[in-house]
């Protein structure tokens, strides 16, 4: 080997060029900031776009005023049309589905994403409801048994 020192220097330079090149040409990952209920309330008051990724039923039963409904199963398709420079706040019921959503946004290069990671169960503010007039009474059971409803989701 002629000059091990020079080889080492060129190797370091080569690696540095590769790293810089990768950083320059790979899609930029956005910034995700976890926020609590108080901070989210401030963001809502300041007019930040708020996205609710729960189901239609959950949303209709109560949502943060002004939040847009984008269920998680339709989220990626909807987000593909959004301006990546506009800050977004995202929430679900407990933070599970919204984590999927904010990871997607971050990977797609959205510049600023606020994640209400505790979810709506930690929200102490008022909730807006959907149209309530049409909510029917549940049908009584023919045998007059007690009834248990379980509301669940696959996502």
């Amino acid at each position: 080997m002629k000059n091990p020192g020079k080889i080492a220097i060129w190797a370091v330079i080569g690696i540095a060029v590769l790293v810089i090149g990768f950083m320059a040409f790979s899609p930029a990952e956005g910034t995700v900031e976890n926020v609590d209920a108080r901070r989210l309330a401030d963001l809502v008051a300041s007019g930040v776009r708020v996205i609710d990724v729960r189901t239609e039923g959950e949303y209709a039963a109560g949502h943060i005023a002004g939040a847009e409904l984008v269920p998680i199963d339709r989220f990626a398709q909807a987000a593909a049309t959004w301006d990546r420079t506009v800050p977004l706040a995202v929430y679900c019921a407990t933070g599970q589905r919204s984590t999927t959503a904010v990871n997607h946004l971050s990977g797609q290069g959205f510049e600023k994403v606020y994640h209400f990671n505790a979810g709506l169960v930690a929200w102490s503010g008022t909730l807006e409801r959907g149209a309530t007039a049409a909510a029917p009474a549940p049908e009584p059971t023919a045998s007059a048994l007690p009834v248990v409803y379980e509301f669940f989701t696959d996502t």
């Binding site: 729960r54 189901t55 959950e58 979810g119 909730l127 909510a135 009474a137 048994l145 009834v147 379980e150």
Partner: peptide, 22 residues
Amino acid sequence: ATDLMMRFGVTAVPTFVFLGSD
């Protein structure tokens, strides 16, 4: 589901709602 969730105020899933026989 949507109408019933509104009726029972279910804002998170999973949720169980219990009704008596009356």
